[in-house]
Structure formats: C-alpha cells, structure tokens
C-alpha cells in the first residue's frame, strides 16, 4: 500500500473537518458577510475532493516516496515548543532576558563551541537590537 497516499488521505480528511468547522461558523455571521467565506469553502471542497480521488487512485501503488515519519518531525516540533516557551518567557520577563537565555540554551543544546563564542554572539546581537529597536525605533522591548 502507498504510505504517502494514505498520509495524503488523512490530510484530506483533516481539511474536510476544518472546512466543516469554518462552514458551521458562517451561520453565526450576518447575512451578506457569509457570502465570501461560503464561496471560498465551496471552491476548497471541490479541490479537496479532487485531491482525495487522486490519492485513492494512488493507494494501490507500492511506494513510500515523500512519506513523512514521526521521527522525522520530532526534533522540529520539539524546537517549535521551545520557541513557544521563548515567546511565553518574553511575556513574563522582557525580550532581552528571554532572548539571551534562548540563544544560550539553543546553542548549548546544539553543542556550539567554544562557550565564549556563544556569549559573544548573544552580546553583540542584543546590543544591535537595543540600538536599532529601542534607541532608534523606540520599540518598547524592555517592558
């Protein structure tokens, strides 16, 4: 069985679920405001059905080309959660503290050596951001 086609079918089902949710939401909209979203959803429905039929036709072919395994996406997803934590840290502290910690931790995990290089990159970057964004552009990054 074609693993890639099976994965694409799952994606199509997820898209159907998402479209169904979006369509249900249009009932909460005022008359007139719902025209455009419904038109778009109708178009998306046609495209997704065509994609699903194509995937079903490919199902019997023996191929795993383009298949995405869980182990492949594990590290990028872990990194993404790290970035979410970084964004939360900005909310609780400020951009400079959170960024200094993020760069340091990220590079230590990725085994960047020597440590003084990490500290130098961290320092230069933060000074650059302070001068450009805080001093010149008056972006309140210290709040």
């Amino acid at each position: 069985m074609n693993k890639k086609a099976k994965q694409d079918i799952l994606v199509c089902i997820l898209i159907y679920a998402f479209m169904l949710f979006c369509f249900w939401q249009t009932f909460t909209m005022k008359s007139g405001s719902d025209i455009m979203p419904r038109l778009i959803l109708a178009l998306a429905m046609i495209c997704n059905t065509a994609l699903l039929i194509r995937c079903l036709n490919q199902l019997k072919q023996v191929s795993a080309e383009g298949y995405t395994s869980i182990s492949e996406i594990k590290i990028p997803i872990l990194m993404f959660f790290g970035v979410v934590l970084y964004a939360l840290a900005i909310s609780f502290t400020n951009y400079f503290i959170a960024t200094a910690a993020m760069i340091l931790i990220f590079m230590l995990i990725e085994r960047v050596k020597p440590v003084w290089l990490i500290l130098a990159i961290d320092g230069v970057y933060l000074v650059f951001i302070y001068v450009l964004f805080v001093m010149v552009l008056k972006v309140p990054l210290l709040k």
Partner: peptide, 11 residues
C-alpha cells in the same frame, strides 16, 4: 543562525 533568525523573527 537558527536562534538568531528566531529572535529576529520575533522582534
């Protein structure tokens, strides 16, 4: 590069 791009994208 990656942590610097993340930090720049955020700001």
């Amino acid at each position: 590069l990656a942590p610097l791009i993340i930090a720049l994208s955020t700001v």
